[in-house]
């Protein structure tokens, strides 16, 4: 009876620690995924804006060349 209780106490401590660590690792994976998504989205938007600005500048130079 007492033996079972001792084992149960030790096991519950270890289980508590393992479940906690598992949840922390799971949350960390989700956080890194989220951070990656946000960073890539921002980078893509920045690149698209840069490309649009370059295109507009090229079109403007072509038009000014044609009017000359």
């Amino acid at each position: 009876m007492s033996l079972n209780q001792v084992e149960h106490e030790l096991h519950s401590r270890r289980k508590n620690r393992n479940v906690g660590l598992g949840l922390v690792l799971g949350a960390f994976v989700l956080l890194v995924m989220g951070m990656t998504y946000v960073k890539l989205t921002a980078q893509n938007a920045e690149m698209a804006a840069q490309r649009a600005a370059e295109q507009a500048a090229a079109e403007a130079s072509v038009q000014s060349g044609a009017s000359d």
Binding site: V6, R13, N16, V19
Partner: peptide
């Protein structure tokens, strides 16, 4: 007799926190 003391290494998640 069985050592029922919580020994080092048996820390729970809360102890690390």
């Amino acid at each position: 007799s069985i050592n029922t003391r919580v020994s080092e290494g048996d820390a729970s998640f809360g102890d690390y926190f």
